[in-house]
């Protein structure tokens, strides 16, 4: 009897999991299918009159602004990832490896942005950018987006790197020092390589968060347009199928890169 329930239990969990994964992928599939739609005004309704077409794939930048917004998103994403990963990693090192006054306060300062709704982050940044920073010449645009993205990615980087650092045995550093490694080479040869997987996943997370952010960007972008903002704005006017082409391509590229990095990591692990 027990084996029967267990048999069903095993299958049940896996079947449910696959159904949920299917649910996660369903809209992606829709995005893919509609990239072949020979749409009229807005790429929402399938055009039965003319069949699927490859023309949007042949001319992905054909719709005005779509590629500019993609380039902006990539630039913002790379900058925000770079800065937030560096700052967040430094912070994580201080929080885990150093003893200082105000550590509790620093932990709260890192946590609270994650517990704040994005719309509040966006709104608050908008108020200082409009009421304060514009006076020193910082207008809403590319750089305000970068600043905002660094801010909200930072906490996620800290949390990811901190978890990795906490799982490291501090005795490894002691062992390295015992084996004639000065603090510099202890850091370079032991601590850093061991923390690196955490830093890499933090960076990937930061890029994903930045690339996909719309709510905060919407508040602080002024006339600058990122890819999600382009899609949101054009939804009201008429969305081009090129957005689907780019959205789906990004998905494929990202999955490809992640798979590649996994393969490389597991190779090196052996």
């Amino acid at each position: 009897m027990r084996t029967v329930t267990r048999w069903i239990g095993d299958r049940f969990a896996m079947i449910a999991a696959l159904l949920v994964l299917g649910y996660l992928f369903l809209p992606v599939a829709y995005t893919f299918v509609f990239s072949f739609n020979d749409y009229r005004k807005s790429n929402i309704i399938w055009n039965d009159a003319s069949g699927p077409t490859l023309k949007h794939w042949k001319d992905p930048c054909g719709a005005p602004g779509v590629c500019d917004s993609l380039v902006t998103s990539l630039q913002v994403g790379l900058l925000a990832t770079l800065v937030s990963t560096v700052l967040g990693t430094l912070l994580a090192f201080a929080l885990v490896r150093q003893k200082f006054r105000g550590r509790g306060a620093s932990n709260v300062l890192v946590f609270v942005p994650m517990a704040t709704p994005e719309i509040v982050l966006g709104a608050s940044l908008l108020t200082i950018f409009v009421q304060g920073f514009s006076r020193v010449g910082l207008q809403l645009g590319f750089w305000t987006i970068v600043i905002a993205h660094i801010m909200f990615c930072l906490s996620f980087v800290v949390v990811t790197v901190r978890a990795r650092l906490q799982s490291l045995d501090p005795r490894l550093d002691e062992a390295a020092m015992d084996l004639y490694a000065d603090p510099r080479s202890t850091f370079m040869r032991i601590t850093l390589p061991l923390v690196m997987p955490g830093v890499v996943s933090a960076a990937m997370l930061a890029f994903a968060l930045s690339f996909d952010d719309f709510i905060i960007t919407n508040f602080v972008s002024g006339n600058e347009t990122t890819f999600p903002k382009f899609v949101y704005v054009s939804y009201l006017r008429g969305i081009p199928a090129q957005a689907n082409v780019i959205g789906f391509s990004m998905f494929v590229i990202a999955v490809g890169l992640v798979v590649l990095s996994q393969v490389v990591l597991s190779r090196r692990g052996r």
Partner: peptide, 23 residues
């Protein structure tokens, strides 16, 4: 499976929400 969970992020969530509107 882990990649599958994260992967949809990279299609913009606005696009996926619009896809839900269609579905």
């Amino acid at each position: 499976m882990l990649i599958c969970v994260i992967a949809p992020f990279f299609t913009s969530f606005i696009l996926r929400t619009i896809a839900w509107r269609q579905i």
